[in-house]
Amino acid sequence: MILNSKIPIGDVTENGIDWLTENYSEFFTGIRDSIETIIDGLFWFLISIPIPIFIALIVLIAWYLSSKGTAAFAGIGLFLIQNMGLWEKTMETLALVGAATLITLVIGLPLGILMSKSNIAEKILRPVLDFMQTMPAFVYLIPAVYFFDLGAVPGAVATIIFAMPPIVRLTNLGIRQVPGDVIEASKSFGATSWQLLFKVQVPLAVPTIMAGLNQTIMLSLSMVVISAMIGADGLGRVVYEGITQMNMGKGFEGGLAVVILAMLLDRITQSLSAEQNVSGKAYVKNLLAKRVKNKSV
């Protein structure tokens, strides 16, 4: 059946958003202020660490969690960023991504758990997540600006919406994948459903949840340039300026810094979801084991 008149989906959305901004402006201001506080706090924390110490720390963390290769890459990459004069911009981006990821986790983990526990919740959430993930990210920018004005906050909000689905989905998947016999055994010893969740299901789902965290961080980074269009600061701004000024060099430098940051975060978070034999953690573990052995000998 074909209607002659247009169903006013767009108008309804617009009116709805107008109504929300008018009636709940205080609510949105509150959210805006808290997100801003988190981003700013994170930024001042990151920027207050002296650059050499920061680089050394990241290199150590990369070695401990991932491998020597990642550690070397971290050292060279961060040195390059500093050398290009993009340190502060990188920290701004890191603060934005960090804050968005933090908020995504706080909302996404409980949603994932809820989804794993209730088939009804899964049925409701699944299309919502599909919507959040596949709706072109630019579309979020318009209401985000309506609600939260220009700047880093609407960028963070758009990022949160866009980057949340993987952590929710993979938390759900991780918990549902816990083998039935382990759950049955836990129940047979009289575990309550909370004990089952926090002593058995969530710990066993951690590798999968970490894979979700990795995805979330990567998606957040992919939003960096897009958020710059609505006034978020950071590397995105550098790239965006490069585009608008037709400055190829500037754009490439900004883009390169984003790539370095992305690869670093990816390698480090990826190692959280898998036990690696080449990591510093394994080395330290072996060292400790040897020491214990020597002592006992």
Partner: peptide
């Protein structure tokens, strides 16, 4: 009162 032993052990891998 009742404890159970399972065919596939049902141990917690973590």
């Amino acid at each position: 009162k009742i404890a159970m032993v399972f065919q596939n052990f049902g141990l917690l891998p973590h």
